[in-house]
């Protein structure tokens, strides 16, 4: 039973690390941002899991419902989702500019160009 109660969290950890891996291992600047996206979304899953109460209902008050899931993590993650999309859009805008300036979005090619000039 003990192991099962952490199963959810462990899967979330795996998800986070998959995203994190894409960020640091890939050389394509767009793919890095995709990885960042996955990493952040996985953290959202951690928070939302923490707010779940078994047998609880969605936190919209209704007559006859006693047990609700925790609304606070939901609020935090709503904010965090916005932060995530904001970061992604700024990152992508930079990628577009980098492509215009270097003609490539591969990290290795960019480093090479900077080294030669």
């Amino acid at each position: 039973m003990d192991v099962f109660s952490y199963f959810n969290y462990w899967v979330v950890v795996v998800l986070m690390m998959l995203g994190f891996f894409i960020v640091i291992a890939r050389g394509n600047l767009v793919k890095k941002l995709i990885g960042l996206n996955i990493f952040q979304t996985s953290v959202f899953i951690l928070y939302i899991s923490a707010g779940k109460v078994m047998g609880g209902a969605a936190p919209i008050l209704a007559d006859g419902v006693e047990l609700y899931s925790n609304p606070l993590p939901h609020v935090l993650i709503l904010t965090a989702i916005v932060v995530g999309i904001a970061t992604t859009s700024v990152g992508l805008a930079l990628v577009v500019r980098i492509h215009a300036a270097y003609g490539t979005v591969e990290e290795a090619d960019i480093l090479e160009q900077d080294a030669t000039c």
Binding site: V23, L29, K32, L33, L36, T87, V90, G91, L94, V95, R97, I98, A101, I110, D114
Partner: peptide, 9 residues
Amino acid sequence: LVAAYNYLV
């Protein structure tokens, strides 16, 4: 641009 991108990541 590259510096800003790296900083962002």
